[in-house]
Design a protein around this nucleic acid. Structure first.
Lengths: 254, 254
DNA sequence: GAGTGGTCTAGACCACTAA
DNA sequence: TAGTGGTCTAGACCACTCC
C-alpha cells in the first residue's frame, strides 16, 4: 500500500477504497470490512474510519446499513433516449411512458400543481420573457411501478396559453403541443439544456436521493415558427440512476 | 428554526445551511459563520459542526480555506452546444475550440496517448465489437487559457482505422472524420450518451476536481452508411462547471 | 449478547491568515 | 498573536441485525 507519505490519514483511506472500487477489487454490492478491521489495518482511531466512510457515503460511492455493514453502491443506469428528428406522428411525445414500458415498468404520473405564477429568473431566461411574467406552471411527479423517477415542471407564458383551460384535462407533452398548435403556437424548434446540481429539498424527498447526491436537470424549450418561446419543461432525475442518449443523422444532401 | 425534533444534529445543520443557500440567504461567495459561532448557535460540540461542514464540502455546496473561513460555492457554468443537424461544412467539427473562443478563452490540446489497445468492455459495447478487439486509442487533455477543462479519448477499431498512421499528424474530430471518409467509413449517424459518475483518479487529477464530486461523461459514437460503428469518443468534464445544450428543428415535411 | 454502523463529546494539535 | 479551518484521539452511547 504505497501512498504519498504526507497525505492525511482519512484522505488516504478514502482514495484507497475508491481505487479498490475502480480496479474492481470491490464490486457493487460487496461488503466492506468492519470499522474495527479497517481501523486496525491503517492503525488509526475508529473515528477516522468513520469520517472516511462518511465522505464515501456523501459522494455516493458506498452506503451503510446499521447493524449489517457498508456496501459498494450499484451503478446500474436506465436510459432515456432522444431520437432527432423524432419519429413522425409520435412527435416529441410521451418519451417517459415509452421508456418505462421498454424497461418493463408501469409508468404513472400525478399532477401536483397547476396554477398561474410569476416566472422565476431562471425560467424567464429560458422563455425569453422578463422575470415575474405570468406563466402557467404544471408540475407532475412521475413514477415507474410505484418507484419515483422524475419530477417534471412545465411553464407556458399566459400570453401563449391564453387561459388555464389549456391544461385540462391533464395530458402529456404530445397533446399539449397539439393544443398549442391550435392557438397558433406550434413548437418547431427545440433546445434541451442539461445541467447537474444538488437537488432542492422537495426534489430530494420525492426522488428519495440524499441531498448531497447530484440530480440531472433537463430543461426543454419549445419555440414556434415566429421565434416565440412557447414552453419550458424542467425534468429532474437521479443523476446516478439515469443516462441520457441523443441520436441523429447527418443531413443526406451534405 | 423549527425542524423535526427527532432529526439528528449534524443532519439538521446540513439541511439548514443547504436551505439557506437555496433560499438565497447565503449567496455564492458568502462566508459562513465560524465553527465556534455555529456550534454556539446549535448548542453542540464543535466536532459535530466540523462533520456537518465536511459533508457539505464533499457534496460540493461549500468549500473551505484554512485560516480564512468557509464559503458558498459558485454555480457559474459554461455551455457546450450541439446544433443538429450541424452547420454545413463545419460538420461535427471542433466544437471544443469554437466554444472556448466564444467564451474568450484560448483553447489548447495535448496528446497524451496514441496507441493500439484491446477494447475495454465498455468501449467494446459502444463500438459493437467483442471486448478485447484491437482499437486505436487517442487521449487528449484539453485546456482553455491554461485551465484544464476536458479529457477526450477517442477509440477506432483497427479494422476501420487500417493503420495507426490515421492519427498523424494529430488533429481534431473534423479532420479525423474526413480521413475515415477516405477509407470508406464516413460517419453519417451519431449518438451521444450522457452519464454522471465519480471521476477516476487520473481524471480527478487532471480536471482538478475532488474525487467525490461528479463528472459528466459524454460518449459520442459515429456510425457509417453500412451501419458499422467507426468511432467512440469519450469526453469527461467537471459536472458542476458545464452544461450541455442540444438544439434541433422539427422536420418541415411533417 | 456480540457485532455492526452512526452520532456525539471534549478535548489536542497543526496549518494557515490577517492584523 | 489571535482566530480560523482541518485532522485526530479515546472514549461514550444508541439503533439495528443476526445468532
Amino acid at each position: 500500500m504505497k501512498f504519498a507519505e504526507d497525505e492525511v490519514f482519512y484522505r488516504r483511506i478514502v482514495d484507497d477504497i475508491r481505487a479498490k472500487i475502480q480496479r474492481g477489487d470491490l464490486k457493487p454490492g460487496d461488503k466492506l470490512p468492519s470499522f474495527a478491521e479497517i481501523a486496525k489495518e491503517y492503525e488509526v482511531s475508529s473515528t477516522v474510519i468513520k469520517n472516511a466512510v462518511q465522505a464515501l457515503k456523501t459522494s455516493g460511492d458506498i452506503y451503510g446499513r446499521q447493524g449489517k455493514g457498508t456496501f459498494v453502491s450499484s451503478r446500474k443506469k436506465a436510459q432515456r433516449v432522444r431520437r432527432i428528428p423524432f419519429d413522425r406522428g409520435k412527435s416529441t411525445g410521451s418519451t417517459f411512458a415509452q421508456e418505462m414500458e421498454k424497461l418493463g415498468l408501469e409508468p404513472s404520473a400525478r399532477l401536483v400543481k397547476c396554477e398561474v405564477e410569476p416566472a422565476s429568473p431562471e425560467i424567464a431566461d429560458h422563455l425569453g420573457v422578463p422575470a415575474g411574467t405570468e406563466v402557467l406552471v404544471r408540475q407532475r411527479h412521475m413514477s415507474a411501478s410505484g418507484r419515483p423517477v422524475q419530477l417534471a415542471t412545465s411553464h407556458i407564458p399566459m400570453t401563449v396559453a391564453g387561459s388555464i383551460d389549456i391544461a385540462f384535462p391533464d395530458v402529456g407533452p404530445t397533446e399539449m403541443y397539439r393544443r398549442l398548435g391550435e392557438r397558433g403556437h406550434r413548437p418547431v424548434r427545440f433546445t434541451e439544456e442539461i445541467t447537474i446540481r444538488r437537488p432542492l429539498q422537495e426534489e430530494a424527498e420525492f426522488l428519495g436521493v440524499d441531498g448531497g447526491l447530484p440530480v440531472i436537470v433537463v430543461t426543454r424549450t419549445g419555440i414556434d415558427a415566429q421565434g416565440t418561446n412557447v414552453e419550458a419543461t424542467v425534468n429532474v432525475l437521479d443523476a446516478y440512476a439515469w443516462s441520457l442518449v441523443y441520436e441523429w443523422e447527418e443531413s443526406q444532401d451534405d
